[in-house]
Write a protein that binds this DNA or RNA. Structure first.
Lengths: 197, 197
DNA sequence: CTCATTTGAGAGCGATCGTTCAACTACTGG
DNA sequence: CCAGTAGTTGAACGATCGCTCTCAAATGAG
């Protein structure tokens, strides 16, 4: 009934997510966005509302693309701990795969925008609890299969893995030597497996 | 020989650090600083150079006040692991002691300003390696006293504790329930102590 | 007291911020 | 083919950004 769009909305959100991820929220200006997205300010504001709303869409997109569906991969059968390791290593790769280490959008956002932005806080909280819940499901499966002791406080161990993941994303931005990160992950998993009840 | 200052430089840097800590670098404007510090823009620029230089001073101040001298406390004699636990819990308290959880200035800064600011990166790197080295010294003492296995990869374990600390500071900003944080710390330390060589 | 020197105070600089708007263009239902 | 709707465009809005300049106030040295 009207003129069709010359851009794909999901594609624009994805590119906006990439920008916010590498440069942060405040540092990414509307000008940066319109240039990188090929969408002019007027269009951007009519379609998405404002910069903050676009940022929330980018956060949700990050959750869908990188967090949803990671829990199922932990439960595909076989030993779980190596899968958890692979997930953590995979996130390291994701954090450093650009020319400059960009870390994790959630950790970056928590550092920059919290406290003070309750909508963003809700979104960050949602992603973190999804990650933690994924780890918890994986650890429960690992406990059933005897990879870790059933005496372990599994929710606490899941929280610990989440902290390890996010802390790793902080450190990689300052010193992106992957070896130390990987050996730290290995030590954490080895330690978890060493607890005997 | 000239008119004396009406403010103490260290005091101003400390208050600037508090502001950057709770609000971040970009979000803290010169106007915010001059109002909170009681120092006018012209004075601020003549004394400190510019906003970025003041921020670097604030980072250095954070290092002096909160990181220097934490390693010695780990080595005062007696069991080390409880001291490490106390240090981690103490940092949790520090992160949430305001009305709003402000986390850790280093984690916040890494999230917001890196990559892209090499001077800030150097400062962050310095603080993180000081923390990691402190943990390493503590773990070596713990290994000597038999609290942990000497088969453990101690540098990797120190890196793991640093990641746990910084990850904890990310998560506390979104969900500042200290109980989960404490139990995660306990699980990590229990796990480390469970490794037997 | 005078002078040199540094401080504090107020106003305001250009640039960029997020945001909006009117005019123009392209498409579809009738 | 026309009317109407939605998309695109370029320009510009007020506000705020980091920062600077000018000038009066306050000191110690001579």
């Amino acid at each position: 009934m009207a003129r069709p769009r010359t851009f794909d909305e999901q594609d624009v959100i994805d590119r906006a997510m990439q920008l916010f991820w590498t440069r942060g929220y405040e540092t990414t200006s509307i000008t940066d966005l319109t240039e990188a997205l090929g969408v002019h300010p007027g269009t951007l504001y009519r379609v998405f509302g404002d910069k903050h709303a676009l940022f929330l869409r980018a956060l949700a997109h990050y959750n869908e693309r990188l967090v949803d569906g990671f829990a199922p991969t932990l439960l595909e059968g076989g030993p779980v701990l190596p899968r958890i390791r692979a997930v953590l290593i995979g996130w390291i790769d994701l954090a450093v795969q650009q020319d400059q280490p960009r870390g994790c959008l959630i950790a970056n956002t928590a550092g920059e925008c919290l406290p003070g932005d309750e909508e963003v806080a809700r979104s960050v909280r949602g992603v973190l609890s999804a990650v933690e819940d994924g780890f918890l499901q994986g650890l429960r499966a690992a406990a059933r299969q005897g990879e870790i002791s059933s005496e372990l406080d599994l929710p606490a161990a899941a929280a610990m893995l989440t902290m390890l993941l996010e802390g790793l994303q902080v450190i990689v931005k300052a010193d992106s030597d992957p070896r130390r990160l990987v050996s730290a992950v290995d030590t954490a998993l080895l330690s978890l497996a060493s607890v005997r009840g």
